[in-house]
Design a protein around this nucleic acid. Structure first.
Length: 414
DNA sequence: TCTGGGGTCCTAGGACCC
DNA sequence: TCTGGGGTCCTAGGACCC
């Protein structure tokens, strides 16, 4: 049997752990640049504010219902996530961390699963302060179904027998199934399919033809056949990229150079953290797609590096070169997207005959920068290009403190 | 003024190989 | 009149996830 453990409105819950006065009142968390709503407490959902609502458009509700709001604080959420996962790992040797707020547990040969689920739930809430819902079923797709049902009832839902499963699928909306997005839901609705139970009555051939093998796997898993094993060790990443919007639109070359340098440095640190090297770099400038009144032009380029690298200085040079190739004066850009692909493990990279010695030197510098930034906070050491005014920096006016990762932000108890 | 960010998987079609 | 067959690799586009 598989369990899916999912944190309830995770970002809101993480904020509430350190500001318990906001329990029981409407709270929401905003996306980067404080643009739209990405996490809502039950009270906010009850007010009818949808996921993704633009923050500036709901000002009246925010005032009227006294809704508390936060900019997203990923440092805090990542640390709280690690706490939840560490606690979960005590309940089974088989755990797949699926996302920042979800994990699948393999409960193979475990007995009395409903009570075990309740124990997991209580332990997580007690040790981390984060409320969770747990679905337990014979396959991962069914565990996802059970999880949705759990959140509407006691917080734990066990689908053990075929009769349990059928009863659950009977009323389960097709669009809520894991792996069925907007497009597939539309296609299925056109066939007269509205519930999961109706879906599994479709012929497999139709599913394969119209929804490829991905759809067929969902179909099989719903019938209790395991097609998706637990992924307890995650495969090495194939792509590392960033595409964060600026706090404003800009056509200023200097600002784009700064943003490029800053994002590249962060990505390079991520590469080193994963012990990977990149062999291809891509860069693209993006306009705001919602501004139909402005020209839409998203120039990009991509090229192979001379040899796979992960140090900030060389990668920054490559990124600045790419930027110089695509920069177009007079176009207002909203984002720079930087992507590293052709990722190789550091250990597999062969030394380059002519530049290998140089890389070694650069890598020592990069390691020193990482150490200093870890010890004294991100951005302590930067390349000169990155360290300017940051007029383009992201808006996050309502940021909470880094309660768990920064000594100066730690809570004081009187 | 104001609309997130970072990923994965699958397929079709074209280029290329011997 | 008539123009092979079997295969790999790469890319773009589309779908999906949280």
């Amino acid at each position: 049997m598989y369990a899916l453990v999912d944190c309830n409105n995770f970002y809101v819950s993480a904020e509430r752990v350190f500001q318990p006065q906001y329990k029981g009142v409407p709270v929401l968390v905003l996306s980067n640049n404080d643009g739209c709503v990405i996490s809502r407490s039950a009270e906010v959902k009850a007010l009818g504010i949808p996921m993704g609502a633009q923050f500036h458009k709901i000002q009246e509700e925010v005032k009227h219902f006294n809704i508390k709001y936060f900019s997203s604080n990923y440092t805090l959420y990542a640390d709280m996530s690690a706490r939840v996962m560490n606690n979960l790992a005590r309940f089974t040797p088989d755990i797949e961390i699926y996302s920042i707020d979800e994990a699948f547990l393999g409960l193979f040969g475990f007995k009395d699963l409903y009570n075990y689920g309740q124990r997991i739930k209580q332990t997580i809430e007690h040790n981390t302060g984060i409320p969770v819902g747990i679905g337990i079923a014979p396959t991962k797709v069914l565990a996802k179904v059970a999880n949705k049902i759990a959140k509407k009832s006691t917080g734990v839902c066990l689908l053990e027998t075929p009769a349990d499963v059928t009863a659950a699928l009977q009323h389960f909306p097709i669009e809520d199934l894991w792996g069925i997005g907007r497009q597939y839901a539309k296609k299925l609705n056109q066939q007269g399919i509205f519930t999961a139970q109706q879906f599994i009555q479709l012929p497999l051939q139709w599913v394969e033809k119209n929804m490829t093998v991905t759809g067929a796997r969902i179909w099989r898993e719903l019938q209790g056949e395991v097609c998706m094993e637990l992924q307890t060790s995650h495969d090495p990443k194939k792509i590392i990229s960033t595409a964060k919007g600026f706090g404003k639109l800009t056509d200023n070359y200097q600002e784009l150079r700064e943003a490029t340098a800053d994002y590249t440095a962060r990505l390079a640190a991520k590469l080193r953290n994963e012990q990977l090297c990149a062999s291809v770099i891509s860069l693209r400038l993006l306009c705001n797609p919602f501004r139909k009144d402005l020209p839409q032009y998203n120039p990009g380029c991509s090229f192979a590096l001379n040899h796979p690298i992960n140090n900030t200085i060389e990668l920054s040079k490559a990124a600045q070169y790419a930027l110089s190739k695509v920069y177009t004066p007079g176009i207002l850009f909203q984002k720079v997207e930087i992507t590293f692909t052709g990722l190789l493990s550091e250990k597999e990279v062969q030394l380059h005959l002519f530049t290998g010695y140089k890389s070694k030197k650069y890598n020592q510098v990069a390691n020193a920068i990482d150490d200093l930034n870890t010890r004294f906070g991100p951005g302590t050491i930067q390349t000169a290009t990155a360290a300017r005014q940051q007029a383009w920096a992201m808006r996050r006016k309502h940021l909470s403190r880094n309660y768990t990762t920064s000594w100066s932000d730690i809570l004081r108890v009187r």
